[in-house]
Design a protein around this nucleic acid. Structure first.
Length: 631
DNA sequence: ACCAAGATGACGATCTCG
DNA sequence: CGAGATCGTCATCTTGGT
């Protein structure tokens, strides 16, 4: 619980910035069709043939048909109504960019409004502290955006020249010199901003760009009437994307200086000596680099050089692990700081998880349709029975065990004697049980645990995903409790879509019921090859069924035990399929999870130690990828 | 009688946040 | 310092089939 409930509607200016961004993103998306991947697939043409036949999935290399354009735009998060309206107004053969520009205008217009919370959000999104924002609004009046901005900027400049967005990003030894240059040239630009300069700076920041990005853009593009804000915004977006591409396409060995400099932290508040001593802290709100419909989006970060090489990797585990665990995980995954996200900011159920990955973070978008955001939206039938004194709008984390039918009975018996309003003591008992066991109201005085298919929906899986395959109800509950929240993962993986228009090769460790695969499928990223490792036979069946039912054109190979997957075997598989583009998986959390009273022994526990197998395998894949690229 | 699978309840600690 | 949340494990009992 945090004291400040944020408005779920993004403010108009930030939205404007995002729309601008999307425009550029789609432009690049279209251009990226003929750009080469990391792997120079000899049989690329063959693969293309296989995948062009699959429905709307892979976008074509040439000019997209209007249907494909429509699908792509929906994926990008534009509303179907606006897309249809734009196509209608400009004709089906209009230039893509014209269509997108038109949609952008509708979107901006329809979201313009003001409210106190929006004003606050607006400045929170720019990285200012909530307390100061509220104070500034109080002093200058909420309509006086300019004055508030000025007050906040000067206040921020006084105490620390650094920019909030970069606060939690480690500027490690790996950072390019250009970043250092950005930083040093930046401060002066900000402090001596002339009025014209300052106005543009503020406008850009209003759009959600950081002070750093904005001032750099002004420096590069110049100021004055001939340079529009849109031009500057485009410049920033282009720079962001170019940087992402550069980071991954450049050979890290060539650009990395041989001398390993000690970690430099320019313009940082003095931190206690070595960064390793300082344990990782969970962000509040737990939204990582940002989630859809919430302010505070961060679109760039700097990865340690070691992490900036193929393949992409994506590791997941519980956020609330014992102290020090995430530091260890991060240190074994090339010092990439974890991205902690609570899925309650994306769907109707909480799921606090940490994700360590080397994916780009700009250009993320949500898969459609977005998940229901509240309990009542997710389960409309519960509204009728939901007592007024149960204030929950979100469910707690879906666990591996469910409440018993007896508990439902006990709750009914506790409430039945009272007509409308039960006494406080009864209410307290019932609410406590409802929260503890994640119960929903399915009848008069009847609070019942979630059914497996309801969990599937909450977690972003297709209905009946875990049905069949020899799975009992108990096994379904267990497997679902151990799974990804698909919408969250898909949001993170969405950046892969423009990078792999012809599909990707995936190594999926600890696959479970295939959360990663479902995410990629929902993103319509074709899976050329999936090598899946999953110990549970019924889970393997579920993935196999999914593979067949969704008519996957690619190859699925399943293994049972990661410990049996030797380094030689991995190399063999990579040679066979041309390497892996993505290594994804969440290792067992048994010995990390808070609910475990018996063996919460940390990363060295019997099951959770398999994390090191993830590391071993990822290392082999990275090394082999390097060798394969050389030859 | 026997077995396999499901159902149930007892079992705290360790975090974070306000 | 108190409130609240947490991809859990285990022994035992019940159920349903042969």
């Amino acid at each position: 619980m945090h004291g400040f409930v944020r408005n779920s509607v993004s403010n108009a200016n930030l939205c404007d910035g995002l729309v601008q961004y999307r425009v550029l993103f789609v432009k690049l998306f279209m251009q990226a069709q003929d750009s080469a991947d990391w792997n120079s697939d000899d049989d690329l043409d063959l693969q293309i043939d296989n995948y062009q036949s699959s429905p709307p999935s892979s976008p074509p290399a040439a000019v997209p048909s209007s249907d494909e354009l429509f699908a792509t735009l929906v994926d990008m998060g534009f509303s179907p109504e606006n897309i249809a309206r734009a196509i209608d107004e400009h004709g089906p053969n209009a230039d893509t960019v014209v269509i997108i520009d038109a949609i952008s205008k509708y979107t901006v217009n329809c979201e313009a409004s003001s409210s106190k919370s929006k004003t606050i959000d607006h400045f929170l999104a720019m990285g200012f502290e909530e307390e100061k924002v509220i104070k500034a609004i109080h002093e200058h009046g909420e309509d006086n955006i300019e004055e508030i901005a000025n007050a906040l900027i000067s206040s921020a400049a006084e105490e620390s020249p650094k920019i909030k967005e970069e606060e939690d990003i480690e500027w490690s030894e790996s950072d390019d010199e250009k970043y250092a240059n950005f930083l040093s040239s930046d401060d002066e630009k900000v402090s001596d901003s002339s009025s014209e300069n300052g106005n543009q700076l503020r406008s850009l920041m209003n759009m959600g760009f950081s002070e750093l990005e904005a001032s750099l853009a002004i420096e590069r593009c110049g100021t004055g009437e001939d340079v529009s804000i849109a031009d500057l915004a485009d410049f920033i977006c282009a720079a962001q994307i170019a940087r992402e591409f550069d980071e991954f396409h450049a050979d890290p060995e060539e650009q990395k200086p041989n001398v390993k400099k000690r970690r430099i932290e320019p313009r940082r508040e003095p931190r206690s000596s070595a960064a390793d001593d300082e344990p990782l802290r969970l962000p509040n709100p737990m939204i990582g680099f940002g989630v859809p419909n919430e302010p505070g989006l961060i679109t760039q970060r700097s990865l340690p050089a070691m992490a900036r090489m193929p393949p992409f990797f994506y590791y997941e585990n519980v956020a609330l692990a014992p102290k020090g665990v995430w530091d260890t995980i991060s240190s074994h995954l090339y010092d990439v700081p974890p991205e902690f996200v609570d899925s309650k900011y994306i769907c109707a159920a909480a799921r606090k998880r940490g994700y360590v990955h080397n994916l780009p973070i700009s250009g993320r978008y949500q898969v459609q349709p977005p998940p229901k955001y509240t309990i009542s939206e997710a389960f409309p039938l519960t509204k009728k029975w939901w007592p007024e004194w149960d204030k929950r709008t979100k469910l707690n984390c879906i666990l591996t065990v469910n409440a018993s039918a007896q508990l439902t009975n006990r709750i009914r018996l506790a409430l039945e004697p009272y007509g409308g309003e039960p006494p406080e003591s009864k209410k307290k008992y019932v609410i406590e049980q409802c929260k503890k066991w994640n119960l929903v109201w399915v009848g008069k005085n009847k609070a019942a645990p979630l059914e497996p298919d309801e969990m599937e929906t909450l977690l972003g899986f297709p209905r009946n995903h875990t049905r069949g395959g020899g799975m009992s109800r108990t096994e379904r509950l267990k497997s679902l409790g151990n799974s990804f929240q698909v919408d969250t993962v898909a949001y993170h993986l969405s950046v892969l879509k423009p990078l792999f228009p012809y599909g990707i090769n995936v190594l999926s460790l600890f696959t479970g019921i295939g959360g990663g695969e479902v995410a990629l499928h929902r993103l319509q990223i074709p899976m050329k090859t999936v090598v899946s490792v999953e110990i549970s036979a019924v889970n393997r069946n579920i993935l196999k069924d999914f593979w067949e039912q969704t008519n996957q054109k690619g190859t699925l190979i399943e293994f049972a035990d990661v410990q049996d997957l030797s380094n030689e075997k991995i190399v063999e598989l990579m040679k066979q399929f041309g390497g892996f583009d993505l290594v994804i998986g969440g290792s067992p959390c048994n010995n990390l999870a808070g609910g475990n009273r018996v063996s919460r022994s940390g990363l060295e526990g019997d099951q959770s130690c398999l994390f090191y197998e993830y590391c071993r395998i990822l290392d082999v894949v990275r090394e082999t990828t390097k060798t394969m690229r050389r030859s």
